[in-house]
């Protein structure tokens, strides 16, 4: 089952490499505070954006006097505004995540920590939410590299427990979160009620969504033999099986189909979807796979 050994979420060498990365949003969102990212708003940066007609009350400092001289009309120069980015990490902490070696939860914590650090380095507004049947814990928005310890402290305190209710959890999150931005959902997506509705809430809020499905190796290649009574750790549901060649084959087919469905669902809605298992080194996941997917650069 789960690996209970306390492990360091991020090691310093890895942090150095993460410092060079930044989160990429395929959408331009309006931020709350001035940041380092281009905002939908026109603002105070040095990068020219557009012209518009002068209306009364405009700051005369932004008038383009050259243009007035040429056209004899008043135009105001608009500049690109740089703002901060909302970066949400949603971590599934249901009992099913406490499985594997290392446990899936530990793995997603590491991924969350890494992504959060990238965000903090780039002065993004990082919010981390833990959920199982509902939102359980929440890390208020933090910015700046100095907040890393808060992120790690929060992650370390997350314990597995409870069942899964994607729909309820993500609905609550959608209602609660004010700003738009990037949402990374870290889960195994094994919710018997389905994940579709839940993701639709996020889509509706126009988040830039990334779904990372983390599975234990034992779930991908089950090494079980004989007549077994499988007990679901979340709801004690029982499935009696006799392990056989056809059953294992069918299981793998179903798993592949489940992934394909998730992938298709996400693709249709502009959600990036990534699959990994707990045997893939998480640094490679962050540095390679997420880069390829365009979450970081």
């Amino acid at each position: 089952m789960a690996d209970t050994q306390p492990q360091l979420l991020l090691d310093p060498q890895f942090l150095v490499r993460l410092e060079q990365l930044e989160l990429v949003s395929r959408k331009i969102f309006m931020g709350l505070m001035k940041g380092e990212r281009r905002s939908k708003r026109k603002g105070q940066s040095v990068e020219f954006a557009d012209y518009r007609n002068y209306v009364k009350g405009d700051d005369l400092r932004h008038l383009d006097w050259n243009l007035y001289a040429r056209l004899d009309r008043l135009f105001v120069r608009l500049f690109m505004e740089e703002e901060d980015l909302h970066f949400y990490v949603l971590i599934d902490t249901s009992m099913s995540m406490d499985f594997g070696k290392p446990s899936k939860l530990h793995y997603v914590k590491q991924v969350a920590a890494a992504l959060a650090f990238v965000g903090l380095c780039n002065m993004d507004r990082v919010v981390i939410e833990a959920f199982n049947e509902r939102l359980t814990r929440s890390l208020p928005a933090v910015r700046g590299r100095r907040s890393l310890w808060r992120v790690l402290d929060f992650l370390n305190k997350i314990e597995p427990g409870g069942g899964s209710n994607f729909k309820e959890s993500l609905r609550t999150f959608s209602l609660k979160s004010s700003g738009k931005g990037i949402v990374v959902v870290l889960s195994d997506f094994f919710d018997k009620n389905g994940y579709e509705d839940a993701l639709r809430y996020l889509v509706a809020r126009q988040f830039d969504i990334y779904c990372i499905q983390v599975l234990a190796h034992e779930e991908i290649e089950p090494e079980i033999v004989g007549d077994l009574k499988l007990v679901d750790v979340e709801d004690d549901d029982v499935a009696e099986i006799t392990v056989s060649g056809p059953l294992l084959k069918r299981y793998k087919q179903n798993l592949a189909s489940f992934r394909a469905t998730l992938s298709e669902f996400c693709t249709r809605r502009g959600i990036s979807c990534l699959f990994t298992d707990n045997q893939v080194p998480f640094d490679r996941l962050v540095l390679t796979y997420l880069r390829q997917r365009g979450l970081v650069k």
Binding site: V231, D232, V233, D237, I241, Y251
Partner: peptide, 14 residues
């Protein structure tokens, strides 16, 4: 033999 699994979802389906 009882065996705990993260989810019986896929097994049941299988």
């Amino acid at each position: 033999k009882p065996l705990q699994v993260p989810s019986t979802y896929l097994w049941k389906k299988s």
